[in-house]
Amino acid sequence: MAAVKYFQLVIGLYWKTLMPLFLLNILLFFVLHYLNTSPYVLSLLVNLLMFYSVAEKQEKFKAQRFVLSLPISRSFYVLLYYVFIVLYITLLGLAMWGGYELLHIFSPDRFTIQEIGSHVFVYALFIIMLASILIPLLFRFKPETIEARIVVSLTLFIFIILSGSNRNFLVDYFLQDQGNLVGLSTVCIASFVVSFIISKQIMEKKVVL
Protein backbone atom coordinates (compact mmCIF):
# COMPACT_ATOMS: atom_id res chain seq x y z
CA MET A 1 0.00 0.00 0.00
CA ALA A 2 2.81 2.38 0.93
CA ALA A 3 4.33 1.91 -2.49
CA VAL A 4 1.16 3.18 -4.17
CA LYS A 5 1.60 6.72 -2.89
CA TYR A 6 5.20 6.74 -4.07
CA PHE A 7 4.07 5.44 -7.41
CA GLN A 8 1.65 8.31 -7.61
CA LEU A 9 4.70 10.57 -7.55
CA VAL A 10 6.39 8.88 -10.50
CA ILE A 11 3.18 8.78 -12.52
CA GLY A 12 2.49 12.40 -11.62
CA LEU A 13 5.97 13.37 -12.74
CA TYR A 14 6.12 11.54 -16.05
CA TRP A 15 2.65 10.93 -17.30
CA LYS A 16 1.96 14.46 -18.39
CA THR A 17 5.20 14.57 -20.33
CA LEU A 18 4.75 11.16 -21.92
CA MET A 19 1.09 11.35 -22.86
CA PRO A 20 1.32 13.31 -26.15
CA LEU A 21 4.14 11.12 -27.44
CA PHE A 22 2.29 8.03 -26.30
CA LEU A 23 -0.67 9.00 -28.45
CA LEU A 24 1.54 9.99 -31.37
CA ASN A 25 3.25 6.64 -31.09
CA ILE A 26 0.01 4.71 -31.43
CA LEU A 27 -1.26 6.88 -34.24
CA LEU A 28 1.95 6.59 -36.20
CA PHE A 29 2.01 2.85 -35.78
CA PHE A 30 -1.39 2.38 -37.31
CA VAL A 31 -1.11 4.90 -40.07
CA LEU A 32 2.11 3.30 -41.28
CA HIS A 33 0.69 -0.15 -40.91
CA TYR A 34 -2.33 0.86 -42.89
CA LEU A 35 -0.13 2.29 -45.62
CA ASN A 36 1.64 -1.04 -45.68
CA THR A 37 4.98 0.42 -44.54
CA SER A 38 7.03 -1.11 -41.73
CA PRO A 39 6.08 0.95 -38.64
CA TYR A 40 8.80 -0.35 -36.37
CA VAL A 41 11.65 2.01 -37.18
CA LEU A 42 9.67 5.18 -36.87
CA SER A 43 7.74 3.98 -33.89
CA LEU A 44 10.88 3.01 -32.03
CA LEU A 45 12.34 6.38 -32.96
CA VAL A 46 9.39 8.10 -31.31
CA ASN A 47 9.88 6.00 -28.18
CA LEU A 48 13.53 6.83 -28.08
CA LEU A 49 12.82 10.52 -28.46
CA MET A 50 10.32 10.17 -25.67
CA PHE A 51 12.75 8.73 -23.13
CA TYR A 52 15.28 11.29 -24.22
CA SER A 53 12.99 14.30 -23.94
CA VAL A 54 11.81 13.21 -20.49
CA ALA A 55 15.44 13.08 -19.35
CA GLU A 56 16.14 16.43 -20.95
CA LYS A 57 13.19 18.06 -19.29
CA GLN A 58 14.13 16.54 -15.98
CA GLU A 59 17.61 17.99 -16.35
CA LYS A 60 16.34 21.40 -17.44
CA PHE A 61 14.17 21.79 -14.36
CA LYS A 62 16.52 19.81 -12.10
CA ALA A 63 13.43 17.86 -11.10
CA GLN A 64 15.46 15.02 -9.59
CA ARG A 65 16.99 17.48 -7.17
CA PHE A 66 13.52 18.32 -5.92
CA VAL A 67 12.05 14.85 -6.02
CA LEU A 68 14.95 13.21 -4.23
CA SER A 69 14.73 15.81 -1.48
CA LEU A 70 11.31 14.41 -0.69
CA PRO A 71 11.17 11.37 1.60
CA ILE A 72 12.13 8.87 -1.07
CA SER A 73 15.42 7.01 -1.47
CA ARG A 74 17.46 7.03 -4.65
CA SER A 75 17.16 3.25 -5.15
CA PHE A 76 13.43 3.24 -4.59
CA TYR A 77 13.02 6.04 -7.08
CA VAL A 78 14.90 4.02 -9.73
CA LEU A 79 12.75 0.98 -8.96
CA LEU A 80 9.57 3.03 -9.38
CA TYR A 81 10.85 4.42 -12.64
CA TYR A 82 11.32 0.89 -14.01
CA VAL A 83 7.91 -0.19 -12.77
CA PHE A 84 6.53 2.84 -14.52
CA ILE A 85 8.21 1.81 -17.80
CA VAL A 86 6.67 -1.65 -17.52
CA LEU A 87 3.28 -0.06 -16.97
CA TYR A 88 3.82 2.24 -19.91
CA ILE A 89 4.78 -0.58 -22.25
CA THR A 90 1.85 -2.70 -21.10
CA LEU A 91 -0.53 0.15 -21.80
CA LEU A 92 1.06 0.75 -25.18
CA GLY A 93 0.68 -2.95 -26.00
CA LEU A 94 -2.96 -2.97 -24.93
CA ALA A 95 -3.73 0.16 -26.93
CA MET A 96 -2.17 -1.40 -29.99
CA TRP A 97 -4.03 -4.63 -29.51
CA GLY A 98 -7.26 -2.68 -29.39
CA GLY A 99 -6.26 -0.74 -32.48
CA TYR A 100 -5.46 -3.89 -34.38
CA GLU A 101 -8.81 -5.33 -33.49
CA LEU A 102 -10.40 -2.26 -35.03
CA LEU A 103 -8.31 -2.61 -38.19
CA HIS A 104 -9.36 -6.24 -38.31
CA ILE A 105 -13.01 -5.26 -38.30
CA PHE A 106 -12.51 -2.80 -41.15
CA SER A 107 -10.30 -4.99 -43.33
CA PRO A 108 -10.54 -8.57 -42.12
CA ASP A 109 -8.60 -9.91 -45.06
CA ARG A 110 -5.39 -8.02 -44.21
CA PHE A 111 -4.92 -8.93 -40.54
CA THR A 112 -5.50 -12.20 -38.81
CA ILE A 113 -6.09 -12.32 -35.06
CA GLN A 114 -3.01 -14.49 -34.61
CA GLU A 115 -0.82 -12.00 -36.40
CA ILE A 116 -2.08 -9.22 -34.19
CA GLY A 117 -1.09 -10.82 -30.91
CA SER A 118 2.38 -11.78 -31.98
CA HIS A 119 3.13 -8.45 -33.64
CA VAL A 120 2.22 -6.51 -30.56
CA PHE A 121 4.19 -8.88 -28.37
CA VAL A 122 7.39 -8.62 -30.40
CA TYR A 123 7.02 -4.89 -30.63
CA ALA A 124 6.67 -4.59 -26.84
CA LEU A 125 9.81 -6.69 -26.44
CA PHE A 126 11.66 -4.27 -28.73
CA ILE A 127 10.67 -1.32 -26.58
CA ILE A 128 11.77 -3.15 -23.44
CA MET A 129 15.15 -3.70 -25.08
CA LEU A 130 15.38 -0.07 -26.08
CA ALA A 131 14.46 1.10 -22.56
CA SER A 132 17.00 -1.28 -21.00
CA ILE A 133 19.81 0.29 -22.99
CA LEU A 134 18.65 3.86 -22.79
CA ILE A 135 17.61 4.37 -19.17
CA PRO A 136 20.94 3.67 -17.46
CA LEU A 137 22.65 5.91 -20.01
CA LEU A 138 20.23 8.70 -19.32
CA PHE A 139 20.76 8.28 -15.57
CA ARG A 140 24.50 8.34 -16.10
CA PHE A 141 24.96 11.15 -18.60
CA LYS A 142 23.28 14.51 -18.70
CA PRO A 143 21.11 14.45 -21.83
CA GLU A 144 22.69 17.56 -23.31
CA THR A 145 26.24 16.17 -23.20
CA ILE A 146 27.96 14.92 -26.33
CA GLU A 147 28.39 11.45 -24.81
CA ALA A 148 24.66 11.08 -24.36
CA ARG A 149 24.01 12.21 -27.90
CA ILE A 150 26.54 9.81 -29.40
CA VAL A 151 25.09 6.93 -27.42
CA VAL A 152 21.54 7.76 -28.42
CA SER A 153 22.48 8.07 -32.08
CA LEU A 154 24.34 4.76 -31.99
CA THR A 155 21.42 2.96 -30.38
CA LEU A 156 19.12 4.42 -32.95
CA PHE A 157 21.43 3.38 -35.77
CA ILE A 158 21.57 -0.23 -34.58
CA PHE A 159 17.80 -0.42 -34.30
CA ILE A 160 17.36 1.03 -37.76
CA ILE A 161 19.80 -1.44 -39.29
CA LEU A 162 18.18 -4.37 -37.51
CA SER A 163 14.54 -3.61 -38.00
CA GLY A 164 14.44 -1.36 -41.02
CA SER A 165 16.41 -3.07 -43.75
CA ASN A 166 13.59 -5.31 -44.76
CA ARG A 167 9.95 -4.83 -44.02
CA ASN A 168 9.19 -6.61 -40.79
CA PHE A 169 12.35 -8.65 -41.25
CA LEU A 170 13.05 -8.94 -37.55
CA VAL A 171 9.47 -9.49 -36.52
CA ASP A 172 9.12 -12.21 -39.09
CA TYR A 173 12.33 -13.82 -37.93
CA PHE A 174 11.20 -14.02 -34.33
CA LEU A 175 7.78 -15.20 -35.33
CA GLN A 176 9.15 -17.97 -37.50
CA ASP A 177 9.41 -20.38 -34.64
CA GLN A 178 8.64 -20.61 -30.97
CA GLY A 179 12.29 -21.05 -30.00
CA ASN A 180 13.33 -17.68 -31.43
CA LEU A 181 10.51 -15.95 -29.65
CA VAL A 182 11.25 -17.55 -26.29
CA GLY A 183 14.91 -16.60 -26.77
CA LEU A 184 14.04 -13.00 -27.51
CA SER A 185 11.70 -12.75 -24.50
CA THR A 186 14.33 -14.16 -22.17
CA VAL A 187 17.03 -11.82 -23.45
CA CYS A 188 14.77 -8.77 -23.21
CA ILE A 189 13.56 -9.48 -19.70
CA ALA A 190 17.09 -10.31 -18.52
CA SER A 191 18.42 -7.06 -20.03
CA PHE A 192 15.66 -5.14 -18.29
CA VAL A 193 16.61 -6.59 -14.90
CA VAL A 194 20.32 -6.00 -15.48
CA SER A 195 19.51 -2.51 -16.68
CA PHE A 196 17.64 -1.82 -13.42
CA ILE A 197 20.57 -3.04 -11.30
CA ILE A 198 23.00 -0.89 -13.25
CA SER A 199 20.76 2.19 -13.02
CA LYS A 200 20.43 1.66 -9.27
CA GLN A 201 24.20 1.51 -8.90
CA ILE A 202 24.63 4.62 -11.02
CA MET A 203 22.19 6.60 -8.91
CA GLU A 204 23.68 5.43 -5.60
CA LYS A 205 27.19 6.40 -6.68
CA LYS A 206 26.24 9.65 -8.34
CA VAL A 207 27.81 12.64 -6.57
CA VAL A 208 25.68 15.44 -8.01
CA LEU A 209 22.06 14.81 -8.95
Partner: peptide
Protein backbone atom coordinates in the same frame (compact mmCIF):
# COMPACT_ATOMS: atom_id res chain seq x y z
CA UNK B 1 13.29 22.38 2.26
CA UNK B 2 13.24 25.56 0.22
CA UNK B 3 15.79 25.79 -2.58
CA UNK B 4 16.84 29.02 -4.26
CA UNK B 5 14.74 27.99 -7.23
CA UNK B 6 11.62 25.91 -7.57
CA UNK B 7 12.87 22.80 -9.35
CA UNK B 8 9.65 21.67 -10.94
CA UNK B 9 8.29 21.38 -14.47
CA UNK B 10 6.85 24.71 -15.45
CA UNK B 11 3.64 23.34 -16.94
CA UNK B 12 2.65 21.86 -13.59
CA UNK B 13 0.20 23.56 -11.25
CA UNK B 14 0.13 23.64 -7.46
CA UNK B 15 -2.85 21.31 -7.53
CA UNK B 16 -0.84 18.86 -9.64
CA UNK B 17 2.18 19.01 -7.33
CA UNK B 18 -0.08 18.62 -4.31
CA UNK B 19 -1.43 15.34 -5.66
CA UNK B 20 1.89 13.60 -5.59
CA UNK B 21 3.74 15.44 -2.83
CA UNK B 22 1.08 15.40 -0.10
CA UNK B 23 0.77 11.58 0.11
CA UNK B 24 4.52 11.23 0.68
CA UNK B 25 4.50 12.90 4.09
Amino acid sequence: FVYDELYMYDNFTISHMYKFIAPLY
